[in-house]
Design a protein around this nucleic acid. Structure first.
Lengths: 373, 373
DNA sequence: CTGTTAGCGCATTCAC
DNA sequence: GTGAATGCGCTAACAG
């Protein structure tokens, strides 16, 4: 891509790099002996092109590795696109808001493209709510879907319909087997759990126990996320032959006020707790419990950079907070979808995002830059 | 920016968001009663505009919060820009290569802008080399500089000249007092050191000692970076009233082969070492030493995601690796400079990037995404 | 000093 | 089935 002229000059290197001009549609049309209009028709798969032209152009296209400039396309693009977005309900300062922020960021970046988004949400702890929403969503006839799935069967049901209608979809956050998305962006939940076990183990004494908190969903058909995390957790535990006692902490999603009692009961029963791992985003509930009682010695490893978790992190009650980069997930999902809709860009299906480890010291820098980027 | 129509529908929210059209130069020209050409002249500070027109346009500009579309500007922009980049010497797989990669990424993003970069490097451990390079660089007459400084006086000397000539400059990685850069992008080294102390403390027993490794430079006029890190380290130690013995590890930059002997001597002298903190990017030297001798019990907290450090991380000899996001620093520096050169975009001077904590488990995800982004 | 206009790379429309 | 022409937001050269 670049030409590097390198001089060695005793104590220093001296480079001049000059840009190589990008290949334009016009260049391709000249190289393949057709008009720019024809090249465009081929690039966008718009038909009305003779086999001969198509072959000539596609040959050149491969040779020069043409990469269209989306930002320039977008001004002259006249097509409208409709995208339906389905995710769990959005609450300010929580996980799914970040995903939607990321989606918005991609839309802002390509603001000249005429995209209208319909957003549908469901209660992620209730499979019936999910089914209702998915049914509603299936009635839409958008150009594409971005889906944050939770329940396996509900999702398969929906995507079966979409596959039939040939409407592309991309998953964020969660992954569902036997579906055929264009792409899926999520954290590697197995590694996430594995890492959480490693972290809690690193910061508590050998002879202390670990409490582990896992949510249960209504009408659950094996919600993937926490199960994978738990498996990662267990595998680290077994691989390293750890000796900590592991106790499960009961937890109620439907009746949050109950959780304080459940925790009290838990700590009365188990006196050797050195640390707790919360496998869902509600670490703040445990942190608040500890804070109220000044229980400084219990370490806490949690997940998801929600407002409440940030607070607990700053107060020193959460020691490590894992971030799944939800905003980035949303951003990439929408950006990928745009690239696909306009150019049928080839896409890698599987994308595991980085897992960030956040502490009290780094959280401010972290949050600040999410906005700047 | 967006219109949200919200319906509450029993179990779900339903949004439709429609894009608001961006304000164009043409809109501004209509609103302020001048021609688009005049608006453009004002936006780019190109002169030849009457006070009356200027005031009218600037008023509108503020009202509508006009944000130009750099990607569109870049195709019609005919000006050439020359930028001189000065950094420590670049080695494959090491810190400064990442900074340059980030700079390249920004250049790729705005590939339609005609920018030529001259890159000069110096030996960061030798102030005389630095002075030579800076002197050479001062003779250039570029439109701007991007500088990775190391030595205080050398840098002040150079920037004094640039200030006189009114050539803008941006710092990456390091910050120098009494200079007037457009912006500076770096990690917060104080917090970095503070964090490193926290991490090593978290993973070693109370009664074990910590070894600390800090490089010394030739003709050093107080290279900022490691001093700030050391201060952060010490402050955490004192604030938390830690009890670990702290031993300094001797280290030679000029004679790397000597380091193995120095380490042998160090470990012979001190038997209670539980962990080591390396305040420069050469953690791999310690890691390799430990690996050779199967010293699994000594924990290691290091900095900078170099190829060698990644290797040590994967082998399990580095426990936590801090990343200063050098690629992102370079990217932002160049992007900011482009924004300034073309639009005199207002800029926040101080930018502290996030500090990422990487472990064996997360490093692959981390590296993979650096390339995708 | 200012308005007009050509042209950047691209998508699309419309004659042919 | 195809090429030429037009317009997107923007810059810059040019004519007044």
């Amino acid at each position: 891509m670049f030409l590097f002229y390198i001089y060695y000059n005793f104590t220093q290197y001296f480079y001049i790099n000059a840009m190589q001009k990008r290949v334009r549609i016009k260049d391709i049309s000249i190289l393949s002996g057709v008009s720019p209009g024809t090249v465009d028709r081929i690039i966008h798969n718009r038909g009305n092109v003779s086999l001969k032209s198509r072959e000539a152009v596609e040959k050149v296209l491969k040779e020069v590795g043409y990469r269209p400039n989306l930002h320039l396309s977008s001004i002259s693009l006249k097509r409208k696109y409709v995208i339906t977005i389905i995710t769990p309900q959005i609450a300010i300062g929580e996980y799914w808001e970040s995903i939607h922020k990321g989606i918005q960021r991609a839309l802002n970046e390509y603001e000249n493209i005429d995209i209208v988004c319909n957003t549908l949400t469901y209660n992620q702890y209730d499979v019936y709510s999910c089914n209702n929403t998915f049914e509603e969503a299936a009635k839409h006839q958008p150009d594409a879907y971005i889906i944050g799935p939770t329940f396996k069967k509900s999702t398969q049901h929906l995507t079966y319909e979409l596959d039939k209608k040939n409407i592309p979809y991309i998953f964020v956050d969660n992954i569902v087997d036997e579906t055929y998305p264009l792409a899926r962006f999520s954290a590697n939940q197995y590694i996430c759990g594995y890492l959480m076990c490693k972290l809690i183990h690193a910061i508590i004494p050998e002879d202390k126990a670990i409490g582990i908190l896992q949510a249960v969903r209504i009408g659950d058909e094996s919600a993937n996320t926490t199960i994978l995390r738990k498996k990662g957790f267990d595998d680290f535990y077994n691989e390293k032959k750890l000796k900590h006692n592991i106790y499960k902490i009961p937890f109620s999603v439907t009746n949050p006020t109950e959780n304080e009692n459940l925790l009290s009961y838990f700590f009365e029963e188990n006196h050797d707790i050195g640390g707790i791992v919360v496998l869902n985003s509600r670490g703040n509930i445990v942190a608040n419990y500890l804070a109220k009682r000044n229980m400084n010695t219990v370490k806490l490893v949690c997940i998801d950079v929600t407002d409440e978790n940030i607070c607990a992190l700053k107060n020193g009650y959460i020691d490590f907070l894992i971030c799944q980069k939800p905003e980035y997930q949303g951003y990439l999902a929408m950006k990928t979808m745009i690239g696909h809709l306009i150019f049928q860009q080839p896409i890698n299906v599987e994308h595991f995002l980085p897992l960030d480890i956040i502490t009290k010291e780094t959280v401010d820098l972290y949050k600040e830059f999410n906005d700047v980027t």
